[in-house]
Design a protein around this nucleic acid. Structure first.
Lengths: 188, 188
DNA sequence: TCGTCATGTTCAGAATACTCAAAATGTGAA
DNA sequence: TTCACATTTTGAGTATTCTGAACATGACGA
């Protein structure tokens, strides 16, 4: 059963509008792209839920990028508040990273609530990447190495450096270390 | 014949990266979206040319918009460590803001260690400015108003929003509230 | 080692998008 | 009206996605 959905109708209407604005008929677009005109017809009338590949080939002929094509979709409002237990945990082993928000794409920063268990260490291989990062230690102690600088930070202490400088984090002392950090851009 | 195409492989790899960054397993995402985990598996391994509808439902669960998803790329030695007592305090009155670093010019972010004493309030006039901001509550409770959304956050809770949305912070309860925040760019 | 849990992959069948061809529908001119 | 042409829609068969269950693997304790 072909279940003409609301989304398919909107998608089809938009495709039709774009095609017509380009001054192309279904057949002309079909010839240009290799996609049968019947396929285009079905898409435009919302009678089908097109595959990404087919839609891509059709849009190439107009031409419109997939990203542009979907910009009309109502942007879902990004979440603002996060309960403590809802922060997605992306850490593993002795290092727990709770990330503020899952939808990093399109955001400027990534904010993390980090817990370093006893012995946690980002490892001998130093991290090097684009961006800048900084943070504040909440409890416990941590040794941070940046370039050839090494420092042990405690509660209230903070840091900030360019992520291109090789860096390493290592928990120190008898209690876990908790810190809040931010980095930009949110690459990982 | 399943003709694993280059595009499907790229699309799949990107989907997998986004899902993993959100800290979700294929099954968790399947449960959240109603799309079988097998479908997600096939998409990610590039063994299928997914329909727009299926892809949309999967992306909604991450969440990432279709438009963002298809945005394929085409297209000094500053101080590093800061002792707790050296963080410059720029707050006044009941609100104490300890800033990580003094040399904000040329930096991408500003990181703050904020203490809201009893009754502290950024005021009835809501803040509106360029940039994005987010943070994690360490102790105490705070009421955050963004647009017409209002929420009380406690230890471990977090927030993130576009600073153009009018916002206000107000300490709540019998103990001061401490939080670590970051904003970009570091305008103030 | 075994069991248990969580993860990703594979399979055969059901559902449906895709294709090619032909049938409607529309448009303008004589 | 009639023709000629162009455009979109429809239909039947094929190809492929989608589904649900089973399979395979890895991690972690008892």
């Amino acid at each position: 059963m072909t279940n003409t959905s609301q989304e398919d109708l909107i998608l089809g209407a938009r495709l039709r509008a774009l095609r017509e604005r380009a001054g192309l008929s279904q057949r002309a677009l079909a010839k240009k792209t290799g996609v049968p005109n019947s396929t285009i017809s079905l898409m435009e009338s919302g009678k089908t839920n097109p595959s990404v590949g087919a839609l891509r080939r059709v849009l190439d002929g107009i031409p419109v990028s997939l990203s542009e094509f979907f910009e009309f979709e109502p942007e879902m409002e990004k979440t603002t508040f996060y309960a403590a237990e809802d922060l997605p945990e992306i850490g593993k082993g002795r290092l727990s990273l709770k990330q503020v928000g899952t939808d990093l794409l399109g955001r400027a920063m990534m904010i993390l609530y980090e817990t370093y268990e006893i012995g946690a260490d980002t490892g001998r291989v130093m991290y090097v990447h684009e961006g800048e990062e900084g943070g504040v230690v909440i409890s416990g102690r941590i040794e941070i190495t940046v370039d050839d600088q090494r420092k042990i930070l405690g509660p209230g202490d903070a840091y900030y450096f360019d992520s291109k400088r090789p860096h390493r984090f290592r928990q120190i002392g008898p209690e876990p270390c908790v810190l809040v950090s931010a980095c930009t851009p949110p690459t990982f």
